[in-house]
Write a protein that binds this DNA or RNA. Structure first.
Lengths: 225, 225
DNA sequence: AACAAAATGATAAATATTTTACATTCCAAA
DNA sequence: TTTGGAATGTAAAATATTTATCATTTTGTT
């Protein structure tokens, strides 16, 4: 999936010792949602932590005009709503279900009790949050400093790291274009140039990275620092 | 200061109960740095938390070509280095002193001991980190979705919130331009238009917001969601 | 195998932004 | 109070990007 916050950030649940993860799950309610169903609404004041069990969750903002701007897509093990637990502020995003999803919902109170008892929870939360901050800073830096071609290469490289063994990124070009802050047309040109350079191969809703080392070298050489 | 991460984010130290803050300070070493002196280097593997006591700290990346790209400027009470405490990864930024600064340096070990004992530390850290993430997401969204004029207004409004009583933002236009991801020229045009609209007044290295409510209304109307 | 929907490719005109260059204004130090 | 550096203002040419269309390719479904 061509998705910003998924790059290199490990899932919250995986960072917890298994017995602590079990406790969190035991304290929460497993809710089921149909495709596209709204899970949380921007502005809502009810705090609580949510953890994806099955399926996924779209994080974004529904514009007044009916448009939906995606910020991230979260998969199994990933969490959202942490912001409401620590800031007493209203929710900043709309969250809706991707496919038939199952989400663990944990109330502020039950979370607090476990949080107090198990320091591994705060550690895991801090780790995911700090990784997210890091990815966001990198992205912001890329958008501000790098021309589209370099920006594209750098983000593709980052995304490739979260791929494990495979070297195929799946997702539409317009998704990636939005992540990079450009139009599909401009992204298309950049992708074409990168494939002329032999760094990637484009396909139907996928991008293949034949040689990650080669791409990495190019990024290092052309994107500075 | 026209600085991204300072917007609306409360300082770490201020979020701690005074007695916990005192313990953190007691466990750390107060180091002094001269103007521009390097405090930490990108790539360094030595973990530790730093808290600004006096002066400030530039966070950024020194390019191969000698350029320095600023990410944030931190002031008293604000912290950096958290990333190294939880990820076991090398430092991602160069940090140098603003003016004659004094920085509390806390080793990973001493931090861990206190962290285990005082849950308020993780709470404060999570709160600052989550607020930073939120600000970064807002900024990213603004850069991707909003034209320069709207983007400028929105960021000025955000910055105005961290101002307390005053309504004057101090800082150079080229700093703000970088934060917004545009050139000084483009920013100048946007500022001119905003002042024609009566929403701001520009001065020498400062921007005044005569009526924050008016600016807020305009942003709400023109920046969606 | 045919077809429709989805995704990409490609083009030119319109627009936005940067680059370059220089003028002007402001501030602080001598 | 002068003066030089720092910051802003302005304008035009060069470039980059978007918008608007339409053609082509791919995929999955009849």
């Amino acid at each position: 999936m061509l998705n910003l916050l998924k790059i290199t950030t490990p899932a919250f649940l995986e960072l917890l010792p298994p017995e602590v993860a079990d406790q969190l799950i035991a304290a929460s309610v497993l809710m089921k949602y149909s495709n596209g169903q709204l899970i949380h609404t921007r502005g809502s004041l009810k705090p609580g932590l949510s953890i994806v069990h099955k399926g996924g969750a779209h994080v974004g903002v529904n514009g007044i005009d009916g448009t939906f701007v995606m910020v991230a897509a979260l998969g199994p093990g990933e969490c959202f709503g942490e912001f409401t637990l620590f800031t007493q502020l209203p929710r900043t995003h709309d969250i809706s279900s991707i496919g038939e999803s199952q989400i663990y919902q944990l109330s502020q109170h039950k979370f607090d009790v476990l949080y107090q008892r198990e320091p591994s929870i705060s550690k895991a939360l801090l780790k995911t949050t700090l990784m997210r901050t890091h990815v966001l800073l990198e992205m912001l830096d890329a958008i501000r400093r790098l021309p589209i071609l370099e920006r594209t290469a750098k983000v593709l490289l980052s995304m490739s790291y979260s791929l494990g063994g495979s070297n195929v990124l799946r997702g539409r070009q317009d998704e990636l274009a939005f992540t990079l802050g450009v139009t599909r047309i401009s992204l298309g040109k950049a992708l074409k140039e990168l494939s002329h350079l032999g760094l990637i191969e484009t396909g139907y809703a996928k991008i293949t990275i034949p040689d990650r080392v080669q791409l990495s070298d190019w990024v290092e050489l052309n994107c500075g620092a």
